[in-house]
């Protein structure tokens, strides 16, 4: 079982490291849109690795199942919040600081079968 312990500790440490990196990114990046990328590192890699380590500690129990539910919650609600935030910021007229604007390569809804139902 020493091997399992080592693996879980490594995962917990990796998760902690990614959490701190994500927080640093939120502090360091220049505008809201770039900061969102850093926040999603916390949501996915940080929480993912940390909880995977905790799951190894808990073994096959109800606790593991609950950790899995929390992770699933993160994975399904994270994009919703990020998307809502980005859309709200764009709607408010906040211009993203970008090096290159490649949006012109396609126009909105230029394809004929856009959003077709099956």
């Amino acid at each position: 079982m020493i091997l399992l312990d080592v693996a879980s500790w490594a995962l917990i440490l990796a998760g902690s490291a990614f959490i701190i990196v994500g927080a640093l990114g939120i502090l360091r990046f220049p505008d809201v849109y770039t900061r969102m990328h850093a926040a999603s590192v916390i949501d996915t890699l940080g929480a993912g690795f940390l909880f995977a380590g905790l799951m190894l500690q808990a073994g096959f129990t109800q606790v593991t199942l609950k950790l899995l539910f929390i992770l699933l919650l993160f994975f399904f609600t994270g994009p919703v919040i990020t998307h809502a935030l980005a859309q709200a910021a764009l709607h408010a007229g906040l211009k993203p600081e970008i090096d290159e604007d490649r949006r012109d390569r396609l126009r909105d809804g230029s394809l004929p079968d856009a959003g077709r139902q099956p």
């Binding site: 927080a23 939120i26 809201v32 900061r35 969102m36 926040a39 916390i42 993160f74 919040i81």
Partner: peptide, 8 residues
């Protein structure tokens, strides 16, 4: 955004 991260 930061508040949401605080929640996470």
């Amino acid at each position: 955004l930061a508040g949401n991260s605080v929640g996470t």
